[in-house]
Design a protein around this nucleic acid. Structure first.
Lengths: 184, 184
DNA sequence: TGTTGTATCTACCTACTGATAGATATATTC
DNA sequence: GAATATATCTATCAGTAGGTAGATACAACA
């Protein structure tokens, strides 16, 4: 992976997490890097190619971190708090989850983009579900692990969304407490 | 309120709920109504004026419905299920909550728009909190009504977001079951 | 009758968008 | 040395964006 390509993706991701894909232009992206917009097209012929690269990259980064969390022997509580900490980091920078942001723009995305986004969320849910199942003895909720995973992940995505408008982190904290209430 | 203005707002709201404020242009809006874009500027000088009107209108509609739900004597379960049904209706049309959509675009909104959005969410939470407090005897959760309100509302917003990408309503259903699990 | 307010139009502006064509320079490979 | 791949540039295009100026038509009102 070339350095230039990497820097473009770094910057693009940051812009998308703050302003959305529609808030990202090839020109401003190029200007900030110090090249011409046509050179950005060299790496990403169409905007949907850039979006696809961003989703792939974001997914890889997140799932690597999740693997690391899963591999390290620990209680369910500590594992999931480490998972939630990923969202807390995003919130601290007044950003959204990149895929959450793109989810709001799904109507203007290519089908490949949509599928990749959908895979991201189902992958996250699969990971969390497997952790909940693995540590079932630590769980006290009557709801199934699959449902708990869907609840928490969509809850965290929504908390980022609403908290950013309100300029607080109350909803993210509340979602964290929700999770803690599921433990024995 | 003139009929023309109303039709413009109706259509604009629909577009925003599907494509976001950035996905709405004065020209396409005007074309669909059958007037010129400059005539849209007659009603809404700047785009932020249109956004402001949309938020005010959306808030009024929702809060009227919430008042009606609150006024009608009923169990907490039925009241909140009626509340959740508002989100289910939105999901059925493959839309987002209009304010949830705009929340994703908050970086490009005027401060007045932001404040109005923030008021929308805090108003929703206030309503739900007051219902939970009023029917405290029906609640079994250890978490406070305030937190439960924040959890459910951000959860519902996130569920709309993620479900639309996945093309399902699983997360909305899971959030509903979460609420039901809080009842005695 | 004349004035004012409402609602629309035509015509236009500047700025920006994603995207393309084709030239150029450099480095690598055969 | 010639050919190729990589990476950049200049220049440009058609389309769209939000927004404005100024004319027009019409109705209500003084």
């Amino acid at each position: 992976m070339s350095d230039r390509r990497n820097k473009l993706e770094d910057l693009a991701q940051q812009v998308v997490q703050q302003n959305g894909l529609k808030g990202l232009s090839f020109r401003t992206l190029a200007d900030e890097i110090g090249i011409k917009s046509s050179s950005v097209h060299y790496y990403f012929p169409e905007k949907s190619d850039l979006a696809q690269a961003l989703i792939a990259r974001y997914s890889e980064t997140i799932f690597e971190r999740l693997e690391a969390i899963a591999k390290n022997p620990n209680t369910l509580q500590k594992k999931v708090l480490a998972f939630i900490a990923i969202f807390e980091q995003v919130a601290k920078d007044e950003k959204l989850c990149m895929c959450g942001m793109m989810a709001a723009e799904v109507e203007s995305l290519s089908t490949a983009n949509r599928d990749a986004l959908s895979d991201f969320f189902s992958g996250m849910e699969r990971w969390l579900t497997s952790q909940l199942v693995e540590h079932a003895e630590e769980l006290s909720s009557q709801l199934s692990p699959t449902k708990l995973a869907k609840i928490l992940i969509s809850g965290l995505e929504g908390a980022l969304l609403v908290d950013r408008v309100a300029g607080t982190n109350q909803r993210l904290k509340a979602q964290k407490e929700l999770f803690l209430s599921w433990l024995v």
